[in-house]
């Protein structure tokens, strides 16, 4: 990345922050799509779809590196204001969460090959619901980020409990299936791992929501004039 010249520093800082924001939003969109598609690949046992999804993770990883570089470029341009610094530090954390979400989706895709021959277990349908729940959580966390809506972010954090409940249900159902029929242990374990990863994605959504609250409440403090403008 080429550092911008010092002249026009203010304008280029704004442009850089805007670009950073745009890249984060694009990444979030890709991450959301990966959640849906990885669950679909798993439930439909679609190895080709799984392969394609694994390939899109490379895009997320590249995006992560670009965002990191952009953050460093902004930090290196001697920004002294608090708001952009807070935003950059937030972006650095969010990008890690997004990258982890991509990795977890890849993990789910990798299980597709392992369960190819197994019958369609009933909890797989619940995993689809869990995947949708988690995707919406990520979506809402970014809605909160876009609109700076603390209430919405708070709601995301609270709704993580729903994800945990749904995960527990899937876990219990799989456990009883595995206990009843040892032949179901292998596919059961794979599905259980997928559910666990989805539950983790939910935790990353929660992280993002927490960072949004930090970002917004930081703003409020600034508006009260307690910090230099």
């Amino acid at each position: 990345m080429v550092l911008p010249p010092q002249r026009d520093a203010r304008r280029s800082l704004d442009a850089q922050l805007e670009e950073l924001r745009e890249r984060l939003l694009l990444m979030s969109g890709r991450a959301e799509a990966m959640i849906t598609v990885s669950v679909r690949a798993l439930v439909e046992k679609n190895a080709q779809l799984a392969q394609e999804t694994i390939a899109t993770d490379a895009e997320i990883n590249r995006a992560e590196m670009e965002v990191d570089e952009l953050c460093l470029a902004i930090l290196a341009s001697q920004v002294t204001e608090l708001a952009p610094l807070r935003f950059v530090s937030l972006a650095l954390k969010m990008v890690t969460d997004l990258e982890r979400i991509g990795d977890l989706a890849v993990n789910i895709c990798e299980r597709v090959i392992d369960i190819r021959g197994a019958p369609h277990l009933r909890p797989a349908d619940d995993i689809v619901a869990l995947g949708e729940l988690v995707r919406i959580l990520v979506h809402d966390a970014f809605d909160a980020f876009v609109s700076g809506d603390v209430e919405k972010a708070q709601d995301v954090i609270e709704r993580d409990d729903e994800v945990d409940e749904q995960y527990q249900r899937v876990f219990r159902d799989l456990l009883s299936i595995m206990q009843a029929d040892p032949a179901m242990i292998e596919p059961g374990i794979h599905l259980q791992s997928a559910a666990k990863w989805l539950e983790r994605i939910g935790d990353h959504a929660t992280n993002i929501a927490e960072q949004v609250i930090f970002m917004v409440e930081g703003h409020d403090v600034r508006h009260l004039g307690k910090l230099p403008d």
Partner: peptide, 18 residues
């Protein structure tokens, strides 16, 4: 309806649409 005024990416976050 409050999406009016936002950018397409902010409102939808659909990479293809963007």
């Amino acid at each position: 309806p409050s999406c009016v005024g936002q950018s397409l990416l902010e409102a939808t976050r659909i990479p293809a649409l963007h």
